[in-house]
């Protein structure tokens, strides 16, 4: 594992994204629009279960939207250039870390907008640290799975359409676990109950990152 290389690649990601600020703006606008559409559609109070489900559905689509482009940049010559410069494993790890950070920021921002428009009464009775942990772990989980999927989709040369088909079933265990965990957190259930789900989520993340680490060199090779 080359930490220096990963850090360098991470810095490259940040620099590229800072140069293209429209991408981040696009992601935020997507979330805000989705939340606003929900606000207009719902009109009035939501129960805890619906509030939770709607939030995760918005976040799921936001994740697909945000992460689909993560390997679109490398087309033709640029991929080859990067391949000669860096170890593919560093590339995938750097990109997973970057996507994880993106998703964490995005999920917390969307939570803010969501609470603003659709009401935060639900959060009043919730175990807030637990709920935030669920949000962060959920974003992390989406990022780890979708990074590899977006790489496969980009290599297959068929971006978003294929990404949705390949990604939805793979992201489902993550989504189910995180929805259950955050629902329990919203109900204010004790740590001893929810810790199974948090443990499961972390385990899923670790398995996914390990698989990405093992498989990515094969994907990157042409």
């Amino acid at each position: 594992m080359k930490t220096a290389e990963i850090a360098q690649l991470l810095r490259l990601e940040v620099a590229l994204d800072l140069r293209q600020r429209a991408a981040w703006g696009g992601m935020l606008l997507y979330v805000v629009s989705a939340v606003y559409v929900c606000f207009l559609a719902v009109k009035g109070g939501l129960g805890t279960a619906t509030w939770n489900a709607l939030y995760w559905i918005i976040l799921l689509f936001a994740a697909f939207n945000a992460l689909a482009r993560s390997f679109q940049r490398e087309e033709g010559g640029r991929q080859l250039y990067l391949y000669t410069l860096a170890d593919p494993r560093s590339v995938v790890l750097a990109r997973t870390v970057y996507n994880a950070i993106t998703m964490m920021v995005l999920s917390l921002l969307s939570l803010m907008f969501y609470a603003l428009f659709l009401g935060s009464e639900v959060l009043a009775s919730a175990d807030l640290p637990q709920f935030l942990l669920a949000v962060v772990l959920g974003g992390l989980g989406f990022a780890t799975v979708l990074t590899l999927i977006s790489a496969i989709a980009a290599r297959a040369g068929n971006g978003l359409g294929l990404m949705a088909i390949l990604g939805f079933p793979l992201v489902l265990p993550m989504l189910l676990a995180v929805m259950r965990a955050s629902k329990l957190a919203l109900d204010g259930v004790a740590w001893s109950v929810t810790s199974t789900y948090f443990g499961g989520l972390l385990l899923l993340d670790v398995i996914t990152v390990t698989l990405a680490w093992v498989l990515f060199p094969y994907l990157w090779r042409d």
Partner: peptide, 29 residues
């Protein structure tokens, strides 16, 4: 989805590699 992925890649070697990677994921799930 594995079959759809295969259907969308014309090149045989690329198809073999990408679908094998997806298959490992699929089996884990």
């Amino acid at each position: 989805a594995y079959l759809v992925l295969r259907g969308s890649i014309p090149d045989a070697h690329k198809r073999a590699r990408l679908s094998a990677i997806y298959n490992v994921f699929a089996f884990m799930l």
